[in-house]
Lab assay of single mutants.
Amino acid sequence: DLSALRVEEVQNVINAMQKILECPICLELIKEPVSTKCDHIFCKFCMLKLLNQKKGPSQCPLCKNDITKRSLQESTRFSQLVEELLKIICAFQLDTGLEYANSYNFAKKENNSPEHLKDEVSIIQSMGYRNRAKRLLQSEPENPSLQETSLSVQLSNLGTVRTLRTKQRIQPQRTSVYIELGSDSSEDTVNKATYCSVGDQELLQITPQGTRDEISLDSAKKAACEFSETDVTNTEHHQPSNNDLNTTEKRAAERHPEKYQGSSVSNLHVEPCGTNTHASSLQHENSSLLLTKDRMNVEKAEF
């Protein structure tokens, strides 16, 4: 173990290094160091905050020279020094078990990766560091076993998940096959086929009936047209017969005018059967003409 005197000496050296690497504005270890034209180094955030307070150039807090945003430059070497100082402080805390008085939040800088452990060898070769390295080497064999167990647990979990997924996939297939086998029997399929065939026959029977009705309507229309044509021909046949009657009536009127007047009046009210309204109107006109002729003949006879 380190003596108290040596611990104090190391602590004083760390404090001196820390004062050199402090920012003059925030009085902390410089984060993202930036250098000016006057070779003074500050935190990048502190300098941008200072420049944004005034429009135009501002003055350096140490030498009062003008500073602009374009004049600022990043210093990589200074950032490396800060990183190495942080590593020294971490090693000091691990070796002594004491917390550094002016320690900052170094938890963000710590890294437990194997590459980081290899890099620590180049920091300080001390008894405390050696003991700590031995402890780490002793704890390393235990870690692979834990990793193997965790991997086995994960693989077993994956296997159970896969088996569950396969079961879920197989179950719908089985149910679907069961439904297909038990849903419709052979008799049901035959009945469905016969039902479809009967429906098709009914459709075939319905369509000819409609065509037959249309044919019957067409035949009825044709018969009505033929009947009207026969009526017209009958009226045409009746007209010459009426003319013959008129000639006979004229002759009778010349011989017996008194008797014919009474008979002509009675004939006005008689309509021949089986004739249309057109034929009756023609008869009325003929009878009126005959009456006028008879009157003329009677007057001539009187004179």
Rank of each mutant, 00 (worst) to 15 (best):
S139T: 11
D200G: 05
P272Y: 08
E271Y: 01
D188P: 00
H278E: 14
D218T: 06
K259D: 13
P61H: 01
S186F: 11
V265P: 08
K44I: 00
T233A: 12
Q11L: 10
R162H: 03
S280V: 01
N157S: 06
A253S: 04
L203T: 14
E226T: 09
H269C: 04
L48R: 07
T163P: 15
E22T: 04
S58Y: 05
E84K: 05
G199V: 11
K54R: 10
Q125W: 03
N267F: 08
A4S: 10
V10R: 00
D213P: 04
K55E: 09
Q154E: 10
K31H: 12
C90D: 15
T160A: 10
I215G: 13
C46D: 02
P57T: 01
L164D: 00
E236V: 04
T76D: 03
S152D: 03
K69L: 10
V34P: 00
N276R: 03
S266T: 14
G210C: 14
N242S: 02
H256D: 15
E9L: 03
S186K: 03
T248N: 10
A101S: 10
S126I: 03
L5T: 09
T248R: 03
F45G: 15
I30Y: 04
E258D: 03
G56V: 03
K87T: 11
E8Q: 14
S122Y: 09
S186D: 09
T194W: 11
S79H: 11
N157V: 01
S75A: 14
A220R: 12
H40G: 01
K19A: 01
V121I: 10
S79P: 15
D95N: 00
Q59Y: 02
C38K: 01
L48E: 08
K31W: 02
I215P: 04
V161W: 13
T166K: 11
D218I: 07
C38G: 00
E84L: 05
L245V: 11
E140Q: 03
P172S: 01
C43A: 00
R132S: 11
A16S: 12
V82F: 02
R255D: 10
L21H: 04
K192E: 10
L164N: 00
Y260F: 04
A133N: 10
A223L: 06
S219I: 13
Q147A: 09
V265T: 12
K109R: 12
T277R: 07
Q93M: 02
S103R: 08
Q138D: 09
P61L: 00
K109Q: 08
Q201P: 10
E99A: 03
